[in-house]
Design a protein around this nucleic acid. Structure first.
Lengths: 138, 138
DNA sequence: TGCTGGACTTGGACTGAATCCAACTACCCG
DNA sequence: CGGGTAGTTGGATTCAGTCCAAGTCCAGCA
């Protein structure tokens, strides 16, 4: 939980109230929040925090690999605090909710060299789409 | 090629000059264009076509399943005319270029029921990320 | 403990993508 | 060929995200 804060301090971060709040919000629920949702939850704890700061902090967390950016095709990017256990996503095509899933195979291994076009492939991202029980029955 | 136009007519579309032009643009090169690129190519063939119409038409093509929407995490959505042969995407993290790839496994099969949370899963989308030869050497 | 340099934050303006909407146009059926 | 209606227009609007110059305040050092 606050090992996140530890890790950040260890990386030479200045620990400011704003950064702490953003980290807390992400650590809180394990849902996939949009930047704006992160912002409004952060505002609840620290009213003066600005949107720009939330974006900055999220960007920094992402480039430190502490948080994952998830771009489903919905409007806004979502942020996934669960960056340390590899997993993929199942998203509802209707309401946009996201769940973490852990499929069995390793898709990276399924991409033969002949299909790599000289790219250095470093990462795969798998998104399953469908309808959640709620939207399916509606 | 113009079986696309045929199919559309068959689905009860009014065939207008604008729609024809958008369909032609997509059918032309097999690259992954952004909506704006589609628009500017369309303008070259039919100067009065408006952005709104391009968006409308693309949206309709997508919901008919004739064209795929690809949301990498870059700025704009891209449209993939190659909707009838299942394939996945390899995207360069630096310059954003996209290539179609055909991995061997079937990731849908890799998702056990216990990981489906009651969703009716209808589709998988796999995105490989890395650097293209060009960006890797830079 | 108190100072100070530079990392952080602020908020408002700005950009780029996409959507909305009300007036207009033109396809297609009879 | 005339009318009803699907389709189009373009300008305004929304929405996510970025930029920037000015101000703030953290951390390391004396």
């Amino acid at each position: 939980m606050s090992d996140l804060l530890e890790r950040l301090r260890g990386r030479g971060w200045r620990m400011t109230a704003q950064r702490r709040v953003v980290a807390e919000v992400l650590d809180g629920d394990h849902v996939h929040l949009t930047a704006d949702e992160v912002h409004s939850r952060a505002v609840a704890k620290l009213p003066e925090i600005s949107r720009a700061t939330v974006y900055n902090t999220l960007g920094e967390l992402v480039s430190l690999g502490e948080v994952l950016e998830v771009a489903t095709d919905k409007r806004a990017k979502r942020y996934d605090p669960n960056a340390h256990s590899p997993h993929h996503h199942l998203v509802c095509a209707n309401c946009g909710q996201i769940r973490d899933v852990h499929p069995s195979g390793n898709p990276l291994a399924d991409l033969p060299d002949s299909e790599r076009f000289g790219f250095t492939v470093s990462d795969v991202e798998v998104t399953y789409r469908g309808l959640c029980p709620n939207c399916a029955s509606a």
